[in-house]
Design a protein around this nucleic acid. Structure first.
Lengths: 396, 396
DNA sequence: TAGCTAATGGAAACCGTTGTCAGATTCACT
DNA sequence: AGTGAATCTGACAACGGTTTCCATTAGCTA
């Protein structure tokens, strides 16, 4: 059991009324009020109690070399006696123009942010960077639904990290208006704003080439949501290229290009979108895809979570992976690793760390900076040559 | 690509110099400075530019009903033109005495906080509660190593949630000194401070009785760290009862009581402690335990993470679970569920949510409040009767 | 003993808001 | 012309600190 220092919190009651300075006056006045609100002790009241100036009290906390050890000891001891908790952080922030915190904007529904291991990894990396620098990490509340931008305005932070939001997000716009540095992770791309992320196009291209090389021509795609409005259905080519989630758009475009090169007409490739990002949604998307396009030999997913769902659906259908169906993911989360998923691994922890460091060092930089992280194609046990049902090699 | 509203951020340059008020004067003075630091526009400079009072500008943002729509439009438009980002959040907080954020203190090494699904669940629940209330969640940097309490003092928050820290944690003491409400999740227990957590003793007792009923008398325990100093080794009874992590202590004590009742001398029961909290640590602890005490028929773990490690070690040794070895956990994380672990499930999401709600409603309450969450013993496939090596039922 | 320096503490400006309140102005309606 | 509402102003006082000079004092030297 711990000393309940919180319960018996003495309140500053000034006594010694010697040498009434301006401050003391103010404080005295305050005491004339109805007492219902017991005022906390302040630096001024502490100074008055001690008969010293506010400067001295402030120095006792922030610049111990500016006053004699003896006086400092007295100040701190009196503070303890009066229950003065030290300088008010908000007032301090106002004066110093430093909040000692970094804001994090993730419009993604919070639940999914905490449930996708990739997102948690980014969060962890960012938190580590902040911890290193001794600054706080301030999660800004901003669900996808609410148009309420006030939370962004209300956040007392020295900078923002924005993680994976659509390019038309109102909260993002609010962040960019704030006169503080900003770093965007993954998406969107905004001119003149720092960014950390992988080279999605290159990574996806490599993956596509792997599948092409295996012989896949009848492919289907499961992707995360492409806009702020829900669409749990097939996606037209037009919607693909108009996607507000830059990462998804780039990945789809890279797939389109790579398969076009291999002679596939992208317009014929089914793409299924899911608004929510869970394994179950991945499964239902796979079901929708395979119901309509049973000839598909490879399901390409733009995230591991979706891919895990696709694997589950394949199992449900009795499809052997990879003999009957190839499934690929993106992210390289540990669950994927365990199930041997073929995927593109990206260093999520590093991503968060890099973003934090970039933001915290942005004072001493001039131009915008883009950090591109390395990705790695990890070929697992879920990709193989397509089952041979179609026209044989030697033609009709 | 998004409009780069952040790049071309005009600076407030007051022009109209009509009716020099005090504010305008101050602002004018300020302009006389060397220009190296381009000043941001402020509410005052905006008012000057518009030729209206600060009150009016403030009202434009905070009380639209106090001024005509036309004037409000003009104010906001001029603000946009001048690049005024709206009232400074820190100044506003100082004035209103509301920070719009909740602090979260988890001294646990951040990496483990993000890697234990139970902790992530709590975090998610807390974040959800905050999001509902529209307040931010401020993660306070405080690694177990650093004695640096400044971060707690620097956090501009309206209250703190403390998650699972040792009772002698200096950051905790700093939190309790702050004049804001506090809610503690799980541990420690502090008189007069709100708390949210399960009834660990009851839950563990139920689990122990399950094992006793199965016939286990030769048991071993794997527990998380008991104090701030590292001890990756067996734990004396004395260290057990002196543990600074209240939850661990309670669980061990409940086990001790339950098994004593069943005729087991607790002093002979091996308990292995691990400072870090990973599956690998669980495995190494199990190895250490089983190497020294091969006669053990059940390994009781104070967390699912450790239990998963124990399962891995059992497999490595070729022990069949539960025929050769019973393993139990605590928490009820989804990984555990998937592997059929016998464990005590606790609603981690609810725990975080409850803590958030409790904190955010603490203004309208008087006394301290304790919320006890229900737990549920979930008997899985990892517990069964002990292998029969010892003396048979009918005696010698 | 005068003079210089370093140590110590204080006065006042400043950070950018919000809130209050009495009063001015305008305008529509009696 | 009088009334009342609606709208806006202006002055000030907070909010609780930090920081830049400046003044005083003490210690020491010449």
């Amino acid at each position: 059991m711990v000393r309940p220092s919180a319960t018996a919190r003495p309140v500053g009651t000034p006594r010694g009324v010697s040498l009434l300075g301006n401050d003391l006056n103010r404080y005295g006045l305050r005491m004339g009020r109805p007492i219902r609100t017991r005022r906390q002790a302040t630096l001024a009241s502490l100074a008055a109690e001690l008969g010293v100036s506010r400067t001295t009290v402030s120095n006792a906390y922030n610049r111990p070399d500016q006053l004699s050890p003896e006086l400092r000891r007295r100040v701190l001891e009196t503070a303890r006696r009066l229950g003065y908790p030290g300088p008010d952080p908000v007032a301090r922030s106002l004066r110093t123009r430093k909040a000692g915190a970094v804001g994090l904007l993730l419009t993604e529904n919070l639940s999914y942010a905490f449930r996708d291991p990739a997102a948690v990894g980014v969060l962890e990396g960012l938190a580590l960077a902040c911890e290193d620098a001794g600054v706080g990490l301030h999660l800004v509340p901003a669900s996808p639904g609410r148009e309420d931008v006030a939370a962004v305005h209300r956040a007392g932070v020295d900078g923002f990290v924005v993680y994976s939001v659509p390019d038309d997000d109102p909260s993002l716009a609010a962040v960019l208006e704030r006169p503080v540095p900003t770093v965007i992770i993954d998406q969107p791309r905004v001119d003149g704003v720092d960014r950390v992320g992988p080279d999605d196009a290159a990574a996806v291209t490599e993956l596509a080439e792997h599948l092409v090389a295996l012989g896949h021509r009848q492919v289907g795609v499961l992707c995360m949501r492409l806009a702020r409005e829900r669409n749990d259905d097939f996606v037209s080519v037009q919607r693909q290229s108009a996607a507000h989630f830059h990462v998804q758009r780039i990945r789809l475009e890279a797939l389109a290009t790579a398969f076009s090169v291999a002679g596939v007409d992208w317009a014929t490739v089914p793409v299924v979108e899911r608004f929510d990002h869970t394994v179950d949604d991945g499964a239902s998307a796979a079901r929708q895809l395979l119901d309509a396009y049973p000839q598909v030999t490879a399901v390409i997913c733009t995230s591991d979570i979706l891919a895990l769902g696709a694997l589950a659906e394949a199992e449900r259908r009795g499809l052997r992976v990879p003999q009957d169906l190839t499934v690929t993911g993106f992210d390289g989360i540990s669950e994927a690793e365990r199930s041997g998923l073929t995927t593109v691994h990206q260093p999520v922890l590093e991503k968060g760390k890099a973003a934090g460091k970039l933001l915290l060092s942005s004072a001493e930089r001039v131009g915008p900076k883009i950090i591109t992280l390395a990705t790695e194609l990890r070929i697992g046990r879920t990709s193989g040559p397509p089952r041979t049902v179609e026209e044989p090699w030697f033609g009709p």
